[in-house]
Amino acid sequence: MDEPIRVMIVDDHPMWRDAVERDLAAAGLKVVAVAANGSEALARFPATRPQVIVLDLQIPAPNGVEVTAEVVRQDPSARILILSASGEQQDVLDAVKAGATGYLVKSASKEELIDAVHRVARGDTVFTPGLAGLVLGEYRRMLDGGGNDDRPRLTERETEVLRLVAKGLSYKQIADRLVLSHRTVQNHVQNTLRKLQLHNRVELTRYAIEQGLDEE
């Protein structure tokens, strides 16, 4: 068997941290670090090199979105699974744009959580129907917004797949319905996120350059 997946848990609620840690450890995963806030998370990340970070968005500063952005900047191969209670939509969308590749609500079962960590570690994306709806909305807003022509756009197939995720179908159900392989469905979902994240990075870079030029 492969090396166990190295996980860091970031959550300001001790009982949650403990519960998640116990569950993941019982499932054979290796919890290399826990953190109660953003600064602890960023301090422990380089020292412990987790493959997956199970991250609560509502943590003392820097918040989950900022932690996501910084971790991905330091190590693009790190995977972030958002485990959020509040489901504050804009935060979830921001975290995903910053580079998180998975999102679960905290009411998800132990099995769902463990499965999600495994999938995120493999490089898969883990979506809830709610997140798929938000991402679809974000693409439509960018299309409506006018302006730059380098805005990312979904292919017809990607839109189709994302809509089915938003309607609550599992990847397997989508694969059956569209007569595709499970892997292809997975790739389509991943692409929708990757384009969004890439666009976000480009926008941030452009913003930084504009700010820099303005100063001169």
């Binding site: 609620h13 009982m15 519960a19 209670a85 509040s86 609500v105 905290k106 009411s107 079962s109 132990k110």
Partner: peptide, 21 residues
């Protein structure tokens, strides 16, 4: 309220999870 809601949500989610086990 946001802070309290978040705390309550956390507890409810935890109870739900542990309850099922």
């Amino acid at each position: 309220a946001r802070a309290v809601h978040d705390g309550v949500l956390q507890v409810l989610a935890l109870v739900q999870r542990k309850g099922a086990e």
